[in-house]
Amino acid sequence: MGEKGKIKLGISIGDLNGIGCEVVLKTFEDSRMLDFCTPIIFASNKTISAQKNALNIDINYNGIQECSKALDGKINVLNVWKEIPELKYGEATEEAGKLAIASLKAAVEALKTDEIDVLVTAPINKNNIQADDFKFPGHTDFLAQELEGESLMFMVADDLRIGLLTDHVAVKDAPAAINPILIRTKVRTIEKSLTMDFGVRRPKIALLGINPHSGDNGVIGTEDDAVLKPVIKEMSNAGHLVFGPYSADSFFGSDGYRNFDAILAAYHDQGLIPFKTLSFGKGVNYTAGLRKVRTSPDHGTAYEIAGQGKADHSSFKEAVFTAIQIFKNREEYAQLTENPLQKQKVRR
């Protein structure tokens, strides 16, 4: 943390030709945000200067060469590169991909060495980031490797929390990827995150079925009966509050999700479509299960509106607040577990 106890919040800048810079700068254009954290943007002075001028965003920033020089009450820009990137809004360029990865790697290294407390990542393009030294489908897999944890893509918005059994996996491959070990691991990761990161004392989790109508007793598919149900029964008998599998088509429409602390969806779109519909652009993508806190907005690079000043920064702002709150919750949890007599203060 900074000298005044403010959380040092690192920001990887994402694809420079998308809306990443815009949502970052718009978020901190509101000086009140500096009361909550000390932001450190991993990019370069010249890059941020070019972006703020192109987007007509009125901010001042403090250029630094190392995180320890970051000033509270200022937007800090850590110089990761010296070159002046050419802005080509709306285009997936090789240069933008290389700089997105340079920013991410520098920010993650600072996170690993405690030079920053939390990380918020601006959107990247999964195609132009691929390189010999970076072959990951996205942030989550890279962070899982670097931070050595059982990562879980956890979409959160107020009391709506949706985790994924499989994330960036083709729909045709998802059923085969789901097995008892994976289910147990993801459920335990969600339980730990709900307790440690969100202050839920006895997490109650719903699992969505793999097939339509959870297989209709084998008529539509056998995976739910053969894989999901036995594990749910086993974990329930062992004391875990896990329920399901529920038919995904009616689960959210009937407000059934409100009865649970989290929902575990079988595959990406099964969880993300209802989440983005219900969260109205204020959702946050949180990577649970890691020893460090990382969040991101729930949208992509949005090339179609990049450089036009139209981007809504609500989700990025929520990602900042969520990262700060989770960091504080983890500190509180650590204190309470060190003093068992105080455990009853953990909120439900």
Rank of each mutant, 00 (worst) to 15 (best):
F316H: 02
I57Y: 03
K8P: 03
I210H: 12
L272T: 08
I116P: 04
S254H: 10
E94F: 12
Q325P: 00
Q342I: 00
M196W: 03
D173R: 09
L119Y: 11
A266C: 14
Y61R: 05
G281R: 07
E332I: 10
E148T: 11
I162V: 10
A306C: 09
V219M: 11
M1N: 09
P175D: 10
H268F: 04
K8R: 14
L111W: 09
I205L: 06
M153V: 11
L272I: 12
S31M: 10
K82I: 10
P85C: 07
T337E: 15
L264T: 04
G221F: 07
D269I: 12
I273N: 08
L278Y: 13
K126C: 11
G209T: 06
E234F: 00
L165M: 14
S151L: 10
G90I: 03
N17V: 02
G14W: 01
G73C: 06
D255T: 10
S250K: 10
V120H: 03
T301W: 06
A107W: 05
G97Y: 06
I101D: 08
V219G: 05
A323G: 06
V171M: 09
R188C: 01
L143W: 05
A302K: 12
A238M: 03
G163K: 02
V156T: 14
S44P: 15
I116Y: 01
H299F: 04
D173T: 05
I205Q: 02
M155A: 13
K345F: 14
S44Y: 12
T27L: 02
M196T: 15
A334R: 14
K126D: 08
N45C: 15
K112T: 06
L9F: 03
G271K: 02
A131K: 12
G253D: 12
T113Q: 13
D15N: 08
D158I: 00
E331V: 02
A102S: 10
F275A: 06
L272H: 11
L194A: 03
V23F: 06
E3F: 14
T27P: 02
G271L: 01
M1T: 10
P340N: 08
F28E: 00
D132I: 07
T140D: 07
